[in-house]
């Protein structure tokens, strides 16, 4: 079952199209990454899923029904731009959001106390938010998203503004939530987090989908790159698109960066080298990073549109 599905969704603000014919689905369970540069339409898409704004066209399904307040009890949301009531107590803040999501007073209190302890804020529970550091405030905000033990946890740029230690804490919390049965959807433009966390990815560029799938599927889209050490120039080998020498010749051997043609399997090149007695001392395939995939897909898309 899909917990979130967008079907040909368009959102326009006046003359500006923020989301353009976007379709994708998020299956239940696991961590889904929503990637894109600034202005790609990530936040707008998430806001539509949360019924904060309505699409101009298309259909959205969240947990099997249209977006609306009926889903609130099952959704946790951490917005990109975060803030809290400065004069409200830490515990009261988390309870308040739990109550807004339909929890009873006692359930909200119990869950809030447990979460605050888990996040290391137990000693600050009675303090007002304006006495907390920025990192602590962000933990409180995260607690407001998690208080209802959501089935769908939506995090919009959750790592922005966090120091490396707290980024690690948040990554653990996201993994814990996913292990606990929640489906986590998070948007980011920092590829390393997505690479470490996501089971599936959606890449957006200027409101349009440019890729949806796993990291491995993304890697296949990108022409493969090899590092080889050979006596001869490999540019004449079958399936090679381009080569670059990366070092001087030593005892007749030289290092090369080899770009294969799109869809070319490195194993076919290795076989061609063996069959053709092409001397090799090193044959190393380089797995493309998400950063590479992103730059390739988004860059190509932007080049195409411009």
């Amino acid at each position: 079952m899909n917990v979130l599905a967008l079907d040909h969704v368009v959102k326009r603000f006046g003359d500006f199209t923020a989301v353009d014919d976007l379709s994708f689905s998020v299956p239940e369970g696991g961590i889904f990454g929503f990637l894109g540069g600034n202005g790609a339409g990530k936040t707008t898409s998430l806001r539509m899923a949360l019924d904060i704004i309505r699409p101009t066209q298309g259909r959205i399904t969240v947990l099997g029904r249209a977006p609306g307040r009926e889903n609130d009890a099952l959704i946790g949301f951490l917005p990109e731009e975060r803030g809290l009531y400065r004069r409200m107590g830490v515990l009261d803040t988390v309870i308040y959001f739990g109550r807004l999501k339909g929890m009873s007073v006692s359930a909200a209190r119990k869950a809030s106390e447990a979460l605050i302890d888990k996040l290391g804020l137990g000693a600050w529970a009675a303090q007002t938010v304006d006495r907390l550091s920025k990192g602590m405030s962000q933990k409180v905000q995260l607690a407001t998203a998690l208080v209802n033990a959501p089935r769908l946890l939506i995090l919009d740029e959750p790592f922005s503004g966090l120091d490396p230690v707290n980024q690690g804490v948040l990554e653990d919390l996201i993994r814990d939530s996913a292990r606990g049965g929640a489906t986590v959807v998070f948007s980011t433009h920092v590829m390393q987090h997505a690479e470490r966390l996501c089971d599936r990815l959606l890449l957006l560029s200027r409101g349009r989908k440019v890729f949806e799938g796993t990291l491995a599927q993304g890697a296949q889209v990108l022409p493969r790159r090899l590092s080889v050490t050979s006596r001869a120039d490999p540019s004449g080998l079958p399936g090679v698109a381009a080569v670059r020498a990366t070092g001087d010749t030593k005892n007749g051997w030289r290092d090369w960066e080899v770009d294969l043609l799109a869809g070319q399997d490195p194993a076919d090149l290795l076989q061609a080298c063996t069959d053709g007695a092409f001397p090799l001392r090193r044959f190393q395939t380089r797995e493309p990073s998400l950063h590479d995939i992103f730059l390739h897909l988004v860059g190509a898309d932007q080049e195409r549109r411009s």
Binding site: R69, D72, F77, P79, Q141
Partner: peptide, 17 residues
């Protein structure tokens, strides 16, 4: 205005209309 400038309206609007 504090809610707007503190950027907490989006959190609230995710729970209420």
């Amino acid at each position: 205005i504090e809610e707007r400038s503190n950027k907490l309206l989006e959190s609230v609007l995710a729970c209420v209309t």
